[in-house]
Nucleic acid binder design. Structure first.
Length: 173
DNA sequence: ACGATGATGAAC
DNA sequence: TTCATCATCGTA
């Protein structure tokens, strides 16, 4: 098993973190039963100026966690039925996060949280063995095996931000 | 193409 | 307090 990623991994540019999470293992421990899945798709949400980032609305109860320590989970509920898993990035005080959009065997942010039983009770917790959810090192991933596209479901974000290629997809072998 | 289904933020 | 919107998904 690889080493567990710690806060220093996430305390970097959000775009870099999103890129480097591809190929890493998302590990879930439920009552001692561990499962791990390769991360295959991510998106970067970068700071107060990014109109697609929830923090562009300002510092609220919902977005507060993004202003905190990198490596914590930002989990929110959308469309009345799906939980989204994000990992906080960059330094304390700068609101940014990476959305985990896909893992091996579960494509789509709502599908993977359902599969791994990830819900609001993990919101604000640090990725760690204690929380039962963490990320471990994986195999080297070449740029040739990665596709970059605009992010999904953010048509409202204005011409500049909606078109930025901040979605990272690991190509299938 | 569309409905499910509830939290969120902004308007009033 | 009401209202439109939403980082989606399953069914059609």
């Amino acid at each position: 098993m690889g080493n567990m990623l710690t806060s220093s991994f996430f305390n970097r540019k959000t775009e870099t973190v999103a890129r480097e999470l591809l190929g890493k293992y998302l590990v879930r421990d439920i009552h001692g039963v561990k499962t791990n899945y390769v991360i295959t798709e991510t998106e970067a949400y970068i700071g107060p100026h990014d109109l697609a980032c929830h923090a562009s609305k300002g510092r609220t109860a919902r977005t507060e966690v993004m202003y905190g320590k990198p490596g914590r989970m930002y989990i929110y509920f959308v469309y009345g039925m799906h939980y989204m898993l994000n990992i906080v990035t960059e330094e304390v005080g700068y609101p940014a996060a990476v959305l985990i959009r896909g893992i091996e065997g579960a494509s789509g942010p709502g599908r993977l949280t359902k599969k791994l039983h990830i819900a609001k009770n993990l919101h604000g917790m640090t990725l760690s063995k204690k929380s039962g959810l963490w990320i471990e090192e994986g195999a080297y991933v070449s740029d040739k095996d990665i596709l970059r596209t605009p992010r999904i479901g953010i048509e409202y974000a204005g011409d500049v931000w909606k078109n930025k290629k901040l979605r990272f997809v690991l190509k299938k072998k």
